[in-house]
């Protein structure tokens, strides 16, 4: 029963993506939608990304310095670990998990409401490919913006760690800098950015699927929104495992 339901949903998802990745009817309108989605899904998320990353960067630095570091470890280890965690996991995977909550529920509820208020039917009647018109700009908009959010997140985390050093006096700035610069592997940055592209696709496409296929009323829109967040989070975790293995 579960397998049948999963396969049915997966088939409908693939079918929807088939309709989504088609040539837009009007490039002018596509461009307008694309810019709007970049602002709505990406730019509007910068604040929460900066805030969370700042505090996580600060907390990682404190945790490593006060709870992990011991006498036989070099002084730069806190900065080094903070950088590696931010680059390898937090700014790409964990940040995308957080964004799947914010952006995913936003997409699912927007499309779900459009479905229940017949706005999607109105597009279809006009002869517009509603999937391509509504979903494609969301996917491309988020995929475009996510590497920038990863960069903002990493930088904000590092600033958080320096602020801890400066305000809390638990580590000197020079030790932190030594750790931040120690054995830097540029590929780690690219690995995070590449992973985030996949996660952005998952967030936008899965959430769009749940929103676009809503049947019923406001309660069903709420359920779709929850399902979108849960499903995209699960898929991000599974694909993180797979991609980390593949890219390392």
């Amino acid at each position: 029963m579960f397998i049948k339901r999963f396969l049915t949903s997966f088939g409908r998802y693939v079918e929807l993506m088939g309709r989504t990745f088609q040539r837009p009817e009007s490039w002018r309108m596509f461009g307008r939608q694309y810019v709007k989605e970049m602002a709505q899904l990406g730019t509007d998320s910068i604040g929460i990304v900066l805030l969370i990353s700042f505090f996580i960067g600060a907390v990682i630095c404190i945790q490593i310095k006060l709870n992990i570091q011991s006498a036989w470890m070099p002084l730069w280890v806190s900065g080094y670990v903070t950088r590696e965690i931010m680059l390898l996991e937090f700014s790409s995977s964990i940040m995308c998990l957080i964004l799947s909550g914010k952006v995913g529920s936003n997409i699912a509820s927007e499309l779900g409401t459009m479905r229940t208020t017949q706005q999607i039917d109105a597009l279809e009647i006009m002869g517009v490919n509603s999937a391509s018109f509504l979903i494609l700009p969301k996917i491309l908009g988020l995929v475009t913006m996510i590497p920038l959010l990863v960069i903002f997140s990493t930088v904000s985390g590092v600033i958080g760690a320096y602020t801890t050093a400066w305000i809390g006096h638990i580590i000197t700035a020079s030790d932190l800098t030594a750790g931040m610069q120690h054995d830097f592997v540029p590929w780690f940055f690219w690995m995070g950015a590449i992973k985030s592209l996949f996660f952005a696709f998952i967030i936008a496409s899965v959430s769009s699927f749940f929103g676009y296929t809503v049947e019923g009323g406001s309660i069903d829109v709420g359920k779709a929104s929850t399902n979108a967040v849960v499903s995209s989070s699960m898929l991000i975790l599974f694909s993180d495992l797979f991609l980390t293995n593949l890219l390392s």
């Binding site: 409401t113 208020t117 017949q118 706005q119 039917d121 109105a122 279809e124 009647i125 006009m126 002869g127």
Partner: peptide, 16 residues
Amino acid sequence: LRREMGMIFQGAALFD
């Protein structure tokens, strides 16, 4: 053919 159609929905279905 759909481009030759116009439709008024029960709830107007305007784009919010």
